[in-house]
Design a protein around this nucleic acid. Structure first.
Lengths: 227, 227
DNA sequence: TGTAGAATATAAATAATTTATAAAGAATAA
DNA sequence: TTATTCTTTATAAATTATTTATATTCTACA
């Protein structure tokens, strides 16, 4: 797993950190925390977060100085979270490289939306996560499978089946489990379906369908993708 | 001086427009103004502003709808200026493509700073939103499609459909998603519309409509533009 | 290690579903 | 009005799912 979705929180108030930790992780982000400016700079350099939430009122340093230090090399979004509400503070922060500025107390839903905006903008053209297995690539988001860069024509069921197996690479999935996931509860006995579709998939996906390297049979149990 | 620094203000309150006009021109920006949503869309398409300031409470249309319409082709920053202060409104606007959201009354210095942030970030965003696929070009701003330099005559629905698919090149879009985007929530069951329009589009866009290379069918799922 | 029985693979036939397309009628705008 | 676009209907064509039949491979056990 990469640090791709990590957000760094630099704030000395433990309650704020706790609140943000709960809110952000509930929304699928990983969290990294620091309670001082110095610590924050170290964390930023080591964890490479996709976004930093920075409090201006830190105990050991002026928040603006931390902001400037970060901006010497950190190009991703920085959102300021501060009790200071003067126009001067806001302008100063924004002109020194902050992407957004929210005053405490803040509304968590709004913060989340502003985080989404910032991340959206920092990714130019976002590429989908792609599962790669040798010359085979599976793009779950765009629903496409390529083999040596050629798009494979899979039916909707074939794609679901391949995706289910690939997402569980190396794990043996029982017939029952696969049937339940793809066809639903009423089809637990239809192992022949599975055989027909597996043969179909192998014909399209494997170099030599008779000697499968990706779609492996576990006789009497189920199927396993890869090693 | 070019039009490169023009900011478009879409707001029905004349006092606000006057205030912004004075403030912004004092800071070196050129101004373009519109008092209705319809007018705003026209101004945006003709003056190509570097940034748009949009009021949500327009007399002739819902501001969010104007925002969505703009975002079909306008890639530069849009800052919302609104009296509405509910978290719901803010989240909704930000999630529909707004870059920032300020509530009236606002502080002019802060607005200027947020404009600077937005413009700073949009540097590097390509200027004219024209999608090119072989001999086919789609100009999202002027709503024109050319094939081998010949302008194709598309109806507005046909254009929206083609643009939606092209903007998501290589991605399979489900029937439901396309219907929701083009016709709205009430039409999720009307897959036959889609078929009729896709046939229509292929007749106009493809070299051989019977063997489409751009407008591909994913049976049982939806459609995909290109590979 | 050889063999019977069970499990699996695969092709091919048939059924069901989905899609393409033309064309007619309805709504809308110039 | 007239022309354009949208919506509906009908039907042919294509694709996909399911069933059937048969060959092959695997596993347990003598």
């Amino acid at each position: 797993m990469t640090n791709a979705e990590t957000i760094l929180i630099i704030d000395d108030e433990v309650q704020i950190r706790r609140l943000l930790e709960i809110t952000l992780s509930a929304n699928g982000y990983k969290i990294s925390e620091a309670s001082t400016g110095k610590d924050g700079l170290i964390h930023a350099a080591t964890t490479h977060p996709v976004l930093i939430i920075l409090d201006l009122g830190l105990p050991d340093a002026d928040g603006i100085e931390i902001l400037k230090k970060l901006r010497e090399w950190y190009l991703k979004p920085i959102i300021i979270l501060s009790v200071r509400n003067s126009e001067e503070d806001i302008i100063h922060a924004l002109d020194n490289g902050a992407n957004d500025y929210l005053t405490k107390p803040f509304r968590t839903g709004e913060l989340l939306a502003r985080i989404r905006v910032a991340i959206r903008q920092s990714q130019g053209t976002s590429d989908d996560p792609i599962l790669t297995f040798g010359s085979l690539t599976i793009d779950l988001a765009s629903h496409t499978v390529r083999k040596k860069n050629e798009i494979l024509k899979l039916t909707s069921t074939e794609f679901s089946l391949l995706a289910l197996l690939a997402k569980n690479e190396g794990r043996v999935l029982t017939h029952q489990f696969i049937l339940k996931e793809i066809w639903g509860m009423g089809y637990l006995e239809q192992t022949q379906y599975l055989r027909v579709f597996m043969a179909q998939l192998r014909k399209k996906v494997e170099d030599d369908p008779a000697k499968p390297t990706l779609l492996n049979t576990e006789s009497g149990i189920g199927y396993r993708f890869g090693g």
